[in-house]
Design a protein around this nucleic acid. Structure first.
Lengths: 114, 114
DNA sequence: TATCGTTATGTTTTTAAAAGTATAACGGTA
DNA sequence: TACCGTTATACTTTTAAAAACATAACGATA
């Protein structure tokens, strides 16, 4: 049982001078793309429109030096979405930081005195 | 010169089971209330509508065990907004955590390798 | 080469958030 | 007690974000 009724919560993200390029939501989208191999399925799972997901991937790809997701259309299955090696790296890096961030918040929550 | 083009940014806030009770924006509003003694002036400075500021103060006051701002109407000047002792405490506590959070982000930014 | 399910992209509609408008209530002070 | 500028609150309008809709393009396979 904590000594306080308050909890600390927050969000972190990676950005460039042009703006946000990766955060909580995008990482989840990328992970679902990796699992399903499909942008449409990933979007469905997250209950977002295909268009929004596609825009997110576009902006994310443009935010890094190389694409994190490789989209292709036509062929067997109609098309596919594949996470690049860079995509895997970036996700891993973000999740590492995210884990530390959660620890940070937990710690501060225990110290809080109001 | 940093080793990477990416920077880390983020937000933290204090919440109860009922939701967010204090974050970056609200703290700024409270500080401006303290400086000006007026909710209307504080809202003007932050370019938000008086209504929005009033709602924020209302929800903030309800989120804690005691009000952080004491509003009163009528009298000299038409009315006033005063930060309570609790208000001062809470602001100080939040800013302390916020400072550590900024340090955390700086550190992670230096470690980032993508 | 016809089919299929997906990616690609512009356009329209819906929804939600914010801003704006209006007006009452208040209590020192002149 | 009339005035003033602010707080208090409901209601309307505007704006921005999200969703929905529509349709073309694509390429492996049968």
């Amino acid at each position: 049982m904590s000594a306080t009724n308050y909890s600390i919560n927050g969000r972190i993200w990676i950005e460039t001078p042009e703006g946000k390029v990766l955060g909580h939501g995008r990482v989840e989208l990328l992970e679902r793309i990796h699992v399903t191999g499909s942008l449409r399925q990933a979007a469905l799972q997250m209950k977002m429109s295909y268009k929004q997901a596609w825009d997110l991937v576009k902006h994310t790809n443009e935010g890094f030096t190389e694409p994190l997701v490789q989209l292709s259309r036509g062929g067997t299955g109609g098309g596919k979405a594949i996470l690049t090696e860079k995509g895997h790296q970036v996700i891993a890096e973000f999740k590492k930081i995210q884990k530390k961030f959660i620890d940070f918040m937990k710690e501060e929550e225990n110290l809080i005195k109001i």
